[in-house]
Design a protein around this nucleic acid. Sequence first.
DNA 1: ATGACTGCAAATACTTTGCACATGT
DNA 2: ACATGTGCAAAGTATTTGCAGTCAT
Lengths: 155, 155
Amino acid sequence: LEPGQIASLLQGKGLRVTPQRVAVMGVLSRRREHLSAEEVFEQVRQELPNISLATVYKALGELRRKGQIRALPVLGRLRFDLTSNPAHHHLVCEGCQRVVDVELGTLRWPEMPPEALMGFDILSVEVILRSICPDCREPSTRQPASNNLQEGAKL
Amino acid sequence: LEPGQIASLLQGKGLRVTPQRVAVMGVLSRRREHLSAEEVFEQVRQELPNISLATVYKALGELRRKGQIRALPVLGRLRFDLTSNPAHHHLVCEGCQRVVDVELGTLRWPEMPPEALMGFDILSVEVILRSICPDCREPSTRQPASNNLQEGAKL
DNA sequence: ATGACTGCAAATACTTTGCACATGT
DNA sequence: ACATGTGCAAAGTATTTGCAGTCAT
């Protein structure tokens, strides 16, 4: 997204166009994965060295409330992406908590009874496939995969 | 679940059968919704007044690692349920963060390419429908719904 | 001009950990 | 017996808040 487009989005939502917010949106639009607040902070910092983490949190919160971004809780922390980004889903291992992104193509709902949605407007569908990865399936054979959370693995 | 059944499950997983763990499993088996650690603690406390929150966390962690329960991050906190419970899904409002449980019937995937799953065994599918609820759709008209997180709504 | 926004630091919420003691097998 | 599990208190990590000063409109 271009700064200009971002500015329009912000104004359209009645938010002031500050360099901090433009930078946050910019970072999210350039990265395809969901970023944690800390990661957004690190990225934004490169263009705005003085920005504070609290400001990033405030910007993310404001943007989420206005429907521009989504907050997805993964592994005890929130990860963000643009509402407009192409959908992708998460395969998470209940054993080692490893998270893998998966493209499941266009998900269509076999039968999603509108009355069950209680008048909510669906913005996006996040699918979390809870699973056991090959490494964790055989506890005896289990090898410390490089990016696994080991033993003292967090809840 | 009966204490006896729980004991078998624990033993089958090589875990010691302690009153604390039995109680935690018992609580989860009696409640259909996902409970937060704090909620599990409050419940278990009624039978075991001396149990500590840390023990509940440890039990939940152990049980999750053994595949008996699932941990689902919702609104910045983990919520737990038995792996064996019937699936239900979450409709969450991105405006006020209200969460509503929805029964979408048996969800079938149009095409879930096995190769995309990288050898993971799927335990369950958690679907989060991100949406805007009727109350938040019209910001001007927005009324403080009883169980909404308002204004200073958490991220 | 003025209300919205930022940055800082301090506060809060949730979860994890270290360790001495207790308990299940 | 002895590894495992418990309870307590203390430490972490992630996120939020209060407030004085700053900036977008």
